[in-house]
């Protein structure tokens, strides 16, 4: 029973991480580069929700569309500042430029909101539900629901719309896509907008139960990065599974041992996977080797 309880908490956490990792892997596929600011975008989304809640005292669900729109705008700004000028350089240049941009976001947040932990409003309301002796926070359920809807929505967008086909063509091979008339620059910018929006939503979702501080971003990026490596570089489904695995380490394994041991074990697992199966548990997406 305790395991089930922990597992549900872990899945809720993993659902939020999955949004972050999904954004990470979309940008990775579109540009070949790591967006190291992805974690700071989570923090930005969390603080955005905190700030909006100050003006509009409504449930988080109603803030969600605003967060999505504003974060998408921030994503466009990230692509313009940290990707566009470096598009013809080796991917490591973008890695470093997004580290720099992450510092800017992190310290901007610190300047605006201070270093203290803040909480965003819950999606619907606080409180718990009980079934069969399991106590489940409403927010956990809401997180799972919103994340599932968003991930499903992104899949629909990618698979079944003209825009999605163009985004995928860009991710597959930028040069060929450009030759076929796909506006590659715009597609990459849109990918950044989408990734930032996903990160922002994750921020809103997590900033209720777990609070948020400006320096939290580093934790989120490390987790997303690990999720994508474990799941197989460039694999969308793998990244989602990887995110779940990371979250389960943090909840289930941490409850059995303690948080530090669980984190240590996660890194040990990561290194083991890198050494013996560098293509990740589910294999690399083709031609995506970093």
């Amino acid at each position: 029973m305790e395991f089930l309880q922990l597992a549900i908490n872990g899945i809720a956490l993993g659902a939020a991480y999955a949004l972050v990792a999904l954004g990470f892997v979309l940008i990775l596929n579109a540009t070949g580069a790591v967006n190291f600011a992805q974690g700071d975008l989570v923090a930005a989304g969390g603080f955005l929700a905190v700030a909006l809640a100050g003006f509009l005292p409504v449930p988080g669900l109603l803030l969600l569309p605003l967060v999505v729109i504003l974060m998408a705008g921030l994503g466009l700004a990230v692509s313009a500042a940290a990707y566009w000028p470096l598009r013809d350089r080796p991917p490591v240049a973008v890695f470093i430029s997004t580290i720099a941009l992450g510092i800017v976001i992190q310290n901007g947040l610190n300047g605006l909101f201070g270093a203290e932990p803040r909480a965003a409003p819950p999606l619907f309301s606080g409180g718990h539900l009980e079934f069969f002796g399991l106590v489940i926070a409403r927010q956990s359920l809401a997180i799972m629901g919103v994340a599932a809807l968003l991930i499903g929505g992104v899949q629909l967008l990618l698979k079944h719309t003209q825009l999605g086909r163009r985004l995928r063509a860009t991710a597959q091979d930028r040069e060929v896509a450009a030759a076929l008339g796909v506006p590659v620059g715009a597609m990459v910018a849109l990918t950044f907008a989408l990734a930032a929006a996903l990160a922002g939503v994750a921020g809103l979702l997590l900033a209720n139960q777990f609070f948020i501080t400006p320096t939290h971003g580093t934790d989120f990026i490390v987790k997303a990065y690990i999720a994508v490596v474990i799941g197989g570089w460039g694999r969308v489904g793998g990244a989602l599974a990887g995110a779940m695995l990371v979250a389960l380490f943090e909840t289930v394994v941490a409850a059995w041992t303690d948080y530090a041991v669980a984190t240590g074990l996660l890194y040990a697992a990561l290194l083991t996977i890198l050494v013996f199966r560098p293509q990740g548990l589910f294999g690399e997406a083709e031609g995506r080797r970093a």
Binding site: P91, V222, G264, L271, L274, V275, P278, R289, A290
Partner: peptide, 25 residues
Amino acid sequence: LPVLRLQSHYFALATLGIGQVVLLV
């Protein structure tokens, strides 16, 4: 030994992980 064989982005993450483990300890 394990880390230097890795390609660029894996190498970056693995080296980042080393720092995190030392910090944890």
